[in-house]
Design a protein around this nucleic acid. Structure first.
Lengths: 160, 160
DNA sequence: AATTATTATATGGTTAACCTAACTTAATTT
DNA sequence: AAATTAAGTTAGGTTAACCATATAATAATT
């Protein structure tokens, strides 16, 4: 059965918190997800019943192996998407926020292509020229390889 | 106030249906969104109260100006995302499906960059070489510009 | 025009998420 | 150790979406 995006959000946050502390406390999860503690408790019980976390009253939450596996998949998707958006010059804050939205329901094929893209750019020997061109295009609206661009270059030359 | 993703889905579907027929019928909307007619009626009432559609009992639904404006924005985002994913070689079916997911909550900056990217690729005079390289990379896992790739090329040459 | 079939609506019920407010347990301070 | 503060829990309530089923209106067929 498919997990809801909210359930995935909780798992991911718990993974992040338990990476530093031993167990995730209700309050920390609540703050991270911008919900009230009572909502966290409710979800904690649900995830516990699903065997994804171990939740002990008054003693916080930890991931089971099953839960950790899922959380890592979600986190990995998040990182892929974020890296991807940053390559496209989306500001990091926004890339992070939007990765939270996209990390849940996209098809594996799509995620795979984003991952390919990130790897492709990273494996280039230098900062790719086409990305420089993309930046120019974002700023000026003109593709450096277009005839428009060459016309402009000619114009500038003439003036000199 | 922000519309829910579901409300946006309904508006977009109604826009698509009314593009061909005069008014959108309950049954058609239900089929398009994979829900029961009673669910459509419920949302129809809600959207009507918000002033986004004109819903007349037993006579289908049409968009108000306000609703049409929103629907067009969503549809435009959808098309941008779909075009974008297809550039990255995500199969059209899947690109369409995932565009439905992404079209709702992404930040304007992100959408804008996707749009820039699509325009960038489209305004290139020829099919961009870097995209050819990306395709190669997807198939082989090797970046054509990498030293690895040159090594391989050398090896092949030697064998001849 | 009457019957049948299709489409639409109303009603009542479910579920996932959330909330507030009251209460309980645990931790900290005096 | 008692009192105070902080954190966690429970209970009860809300909302957006959905559904099934029963009924009503419209359309199509005979």
């Amino acid at each position: 059965m498919q997990l809801s995006r909210k359930a995935e959000d909780y798992l991911e946050v718990i993974l992040n918190i338990t990476a530093t502390k031993g167990r995730a406390r209700i309050k920390d999860i609540a703050r991270a997800l911008n919900v009230r503690p009572s909502s966290v408790v409710e979800m904690a019980n649900r995830l516990n019943d699903m065997g994804l976390v171990e939740y002990r009253k008054y003693d916080g939450i930890s991931l089971t192996e099953k839960g950790k596996t899922i959380a890592k998949v979600v986190k990995d998707r998040h990182e892929t998407i974020q890296a991807f958006l940053e390559i496209l010059k989306v500001p990091p804050r926004i890339a992070d926020k939007d990765a939270c939205i996209m990390e849940h329901e996209l098809e594996p094929e799509t995620i795979e292509q984003l991952r390919n893209f990130v790897r492709f750019v990273r494996s280039a020997p230098d900062y790719p020229q086409w990305l420089q061109h993309f930046e120019t295009f974002c700023k000026t609206g003109v593709h450096p390889c277009s005839s428009d661009s060459r016309d402009i270059a000619l114009l500038v030359k003439k003036k000199e």
